[in-house]
Design a protein around this nucleic acid. Sequence first.
DNA 1: CGAAATTTTTACCAAATGGTCAAGAAATAA
DNA 2: TTATTTCTTGACCATTTGGTAAAAATTTCG
Lengths: 220, 220
Amino acid sequence: MERVKEPCAPAEPEAPAESGKTRIQARNEARILDAAQEVFAERGFRGATVDAIAAKAGMSKPNLHYYFKRKSDLYVAVLRRTLDIWLEPFAELDPEGDPEIELRRYIARKLDMSRLYPDASRVFANEMLQGAPQLRGYLAGELRELVDRKAEVIRHWIARGVLSEIDPHHLVFLIWAATQHYADFDPQVRAVLGKRKLGEQDFADIEESLCRIIFRGLLP
Amino acid sequence: MERVKEPCAPAEPEAPAESGKTRIQARNEARILDAAQEVFAERGFRGATVDAIAAKAGMSKPNLHYYFKRKSDLYVAVLRRTLDIWLEPFAELDPEGDPEIELRRYIARKLDMSRLYPDASRVFANEMLQGAPQLRGYLAGELRELVDRKAEVIRHWIARGVLSEIDPHHLVFLIWAATQHYADFDPQVRAVLGKRKLGEQDFADIEESLCRIIFRGLLP
DNA sequence: CGAAATTTTTACCAAATGGTCAAGAAATAA
DNA sequence: TTATTTCTTGACCATTTGGTAAAAATTTCG
C-alpha cells in the first residue's frame, strides 16, 4: 500500500518533491492546491465545491479525493502553505538593523505578496472572517510567539531611540491591514481608483504612499 | 393584495417603520436583517443557509420567504444597510476644519463601528473577497464619487499647508484598512494580544496608537 | 513480459438546501 | 359578526454537494 520506493538518486530534476512522493503525486497535489486556493479565495470554505476545485485542477472529483480525503484537509493545506510564505519576511526583521530600512523592506515584501498571491491572502482573510476555526490553535501558539518576539525587536528600536514610542502590536496590525487590504479589497480599490487592474507601478505608488505616512506622518 | 391602509395617525409609537409597512412587517424585517447579518458574517453568502437565518430570527423558512423572496435579496438588503451607516461620517469630513481633528474624529467613529457592529463589517468584507458581485455598480458609482469628493478635501488641506503631501486615495484606504481590521481579523488580533475580547479600553488604545502613527509617523 | 502498486474513472448515495404551494391562523376593517 | 387582508406553517420537490465503492487503466519495477 504505502510507497516504499525511491532507492535511487535523491536529487529530483523538477519540483522539490517532498521525499516519499511520486512524481505524479507531487504534481497533482500542487495542481490541486493551486486550484483550491483559487476557488476557496472566491467562494469561501463552504461556498467552494469539491467539483469546482477538481475541474480547475483538471481532474475528476473522486480523483481529487484520492489525494485529499476531505475538503477540510485541502483547506488546511492551503492555509498552511500561505502561512509558511507569510511568516518568512516577518521573522527576518533584524533588531540591529535600521528600522526604516527594515520595516520598509518588510512592507515591500508584504505588498509583493498581495500583488503576486492575492488569492492566498483572500483565503486567509476568509478564515479570519469565519472566526478562524482551523487556525485558532496556530494563531494563539506559533503566531503569537513570533509576534511577541518581533514586538521585542520594535521595543529594542524604541529603546535605541531610533523609533518613536508606539505600541508594537498595533504597528504590526497596521502594516498587515494596510498591505493585505490591496489583495482582500481589490474590487473596492480598483473601483475607487477607476483602474481595471493594479499593476506593478500601482503597487510602487502604494509602497511610497504607505511608507511616507507611516514613517513621517500626516502633519507637516 | 397590496396594503392600502393607514388612513389613521401617521406617527408610530415604536420603530420608525417605513411608511406603507405593517407593525409586524417592520418588526419581522428588522429581525430577519439582524439574523441574516449574523449568519452571513460568519458563513459568507454561500455558506449561510436560509434555515439558519430563519431559526436565528425565530421563524420558519417559508415565513422568512414571505418577507424576502430570495436569499440574495436579503444579502443585498444587509449590505445596503451597512453602507448607509458607513457613509455618513466619511461624508462629514469638513474641508474648512483642522485635518488632525477631522481625521481623528473620522477614525474614532470608524473604530466605533468595528467595535459595535463587527458583523456588518464582516459581511462587507466577505462581499469584497468574492469580488463584489452585488456591490460592483455601487462601488464604481456612488462610492467612487464620494471618495473623489473627499480626496478633494484632502488636497485642499495639503494646499492650505496643514497636511503633508500624500496621495489622498491611499490615505483613505489606509484608514479603512486599519479600522476595519479590528472587526474583520478579530480572531487574529485577540489571539496575538492574548485577550478573550476587545473592550472599550482596547479600542481607545487602538485609536491612540493609530492616530499617533498616522499623524506623527514612526521616526523620532 | 508480468505482477504489484498506483492512479483514474464510472456509477452512485445520503444529506443538505433554496425555494414553492396550498391550506390554516391571526389580525384588521366594516 | 363577518369579510378581507395579512401572516404562518407543514409538506414537499428538484438540485446540489461531499463523499464512497469498486472496477478499470496506467505506471513501476523485478
